[in-house]
Amino acid sequence: MHDLAPLTALGSSAPQRDTIGPVTITENPDRALASVAARLGQDAACTKALASVLGTSAPDVAQCVQGPALGAFWMAQHCWIVDGPYDLDDPQTDLAARLKAELGDMASVTDQSGAWVRFDVHGDGLGALFERLCNLDMARMTDGTARRTMIDHLGCFVLSHRGGNTVYGPRSSAQSLHHALITAARSAF
């Protein structure tokens, strides 16, 4: 076990949580992410193998799924991002390595854990918040929808699932993204 102390994307040792009106915005630093892209001609095999890893079928276009341990969302044709708990104690068995071991030559797997900041947004009136952030039609963002969009000039993924929305944005701009979320929430509520 190494002794380097992690920082959250917002630059602190503990995640930040803000409640504004009916909405709570929580930084979630404890997720591991890995991209899975099917190799040429391996689309079907990879989709199938990914389903067995996830314990549920791989997400279709603009969808996200949650399996018993791992979740995943669609990123591009035959390309997904898988998410699971970040194992601080045993980073050697990181998510990407485990996926690569399962998927072998069916897929290219890349660790994306450090690339994104994740905010979980819960509460009533998410529509009123997100209509000030991005051009997604929140009425059509039913549970299980995952779309890439722009929030204050930042390319982000917005996932809609029971109980709230998750926003993945570029980690280096975590503070800007957080500022955008907070400002929009104060404006909306």
């Binding site: 990123m75 591009a76 044709q77 890439r148 969009t149 722009m150 390319g155």
Partner: peptide, 10 residues
């Protein structure tokens, strides 16, 4: 040609 830069990169 258009590139879906803020979408699926297609």
């Amino acid at each position: 040609l258009w590139f879906h830069e803020q979408g699926d990169r297609s």
